[in-house]
Nucleic acid binder design. Sequence first.
DNA 1: GATCAGTTCAAACGATCGTTTGAGCATACG
DNA 2: CGTATGCTCAAACGATCGTTTGAACTGATC
Lengths: 204, 204
Amino acid sequence: MNAPGSTKERILSAAEALFAQRGFDGASLRQLTAAAGVNLAAVNYHFGSKEKLVEQVFRRRLDALNADRLAALANVAGKPGTTLEDVLAAYIRPALELSHEGNGALFMRVLARAFAEHDDTLRQFLSENYGHVMRQFTAEFARLLPQLSKEELYWRIDLVTGALTHAMSGFGMIQRKRDVTEQEHREQTAQHLIRFALAGLSHP
Amino acid sequence: MNAPGSTKERILSAAEALFAQRGFDGASLRQLTAAAGVNLAAVNYHFGSKEKLVEQVFRRRLDALNADRLAALANVAGKPGTTLEDVLAAYIRPALELSHEGNGALFMRVLARAFAEHDDTLRQFLSENYGHVMRQFTAEFARLLPQLSKEELYWRIDLVTGALTHAMSGFGMIQRKRDVTEQEHREQTAQHLIRFALAGLSHP
DNA sequence: GATCAGTTCAAACGATCGTTTGAGCATACG
DNA sequence: CGTATGCTCAAACGATCGTTTGAACTGATC
C-alpha cells in the first residue's frame, strides 16, 4: 500500500524505534518527526493523532505476525499426529523470526512495554483485534493436555506467555557468539524457548 | 524513620500507586501531590527531584524484599539436604508475600514497568543495589544443577524470571475464588509458580 | 497554462510539565 | 518574648508537549 520510503512509512519506523527506546509518553512528536526527517505536522496529517499512530505501529507488525501464527497452527491443529511441541513451534517461531528481521526486535520491546503499561485502551485494542489467535492456540493446547483442569492450563499458558514476552523483548543476557551464524543462533534460541515452554506446560 | 502518616510517606504511597497506573512519565507531580493531599512543592523539598522520588519508591520496597530473600536463602544454601524447590521457595515466597500486602501489588507493577522501560539509569541503580542477591541465588542454582552448562543455566533463569515478573505484576487472569481464603489462594499461587519454575529449570 | 487535490512547511496555539521562589506558619530553645 | 528551624503554601518560571492553521509547493488532469 505504502511505498517503503514514503512519509508514512518513515514515520512508522521512526516511531517504532523511539517508542521502544523512550516509551509512548517519553517519545515526543518533535523527536519522532526529526528522526524520520519529516515535518512535525505530518503525523497529525497522516495519522490523525499520536494515539492513532501508536495503533498503526502495532497493526503493521501484528497483522503479519498473527497471520503467520495462524497459518502455522492450521498445519498441525486437530491432526492426530500433532505434538505439543508442534503447536508451541507454531506460536514461537513466527515471533522469533519477526524479532530477528529489520526493526522487528525494536517492535518486540514496544510490545513488552504495552504489556507493562496496563493501558486499558491499548489492551482492548489488542484483545479485539488479536484475541482470537490466543483463543485458537489455547483450544489446541487443551486438546493436547486433556489431563489439565481449565484453571491449571490457564495458569501455565499465562506463565509461558510471560517467559516468552520477556525473552523476545531482549531483556535476556544471552547474546549471539561470534562463531555461530545468525540463523544458527535463532535456531538455538527457538530450541531453548520451545523446550522451556514444553516443560512448563506439560510437567506432571 | 518516617511516621506512617508523614508527608514523605504519603508522597511515597501515592507515587507508588500512580506510577503503577500511569508510568513514571505519565504520572505528573501535580496529580501525585493532589492524590497525596500535599503541596506541589513538597516533592522537590523532601526528595530533591522527581527522579530521586522514583529511586526512593524502589528502595522502600526492595530493601525489605531482598533482605527477606537473602534470609530465606541463608537457611538452605550450601546445605546437603537442600532441594531446588527450597531455593525457589526462598526466591518466590517473599515476593509473593509482598505482592499480597497493602500496596505491594502496585509496587510489583511498578517493578514490571521498570523492566520494560530499559532505562539505563534505573537498570544501573537496580544492578548496583540488588545485583548481589541475584548472584547468590544463581550460585546456589548452579550448585544444585551441576549438569547444566553455564549458558544453559542462564537461559533458564532468565526465562523463569520473565514468567515470575509477569505473574507477580498481576498480568495474569487468575483471580481468587470466593470460596478460598486469601491465605489459601497465596499458597496455591506459590505452588503454581514454584512447580512451573521447577519444571523450567530442571527439565532434561 | 489554468485548476485542483494531495502534501509539506514554518509558525503559532493553549495546556501541562518539573522546578524554583519567597512569604507565611508552626514548634522548640535561649 | 525573640528568634531560629523545619515545613507548607500559592504563585510564578521557562520549557516542552500535542495539535491546529494557512500559506506554499507538487504533480496530474483538462
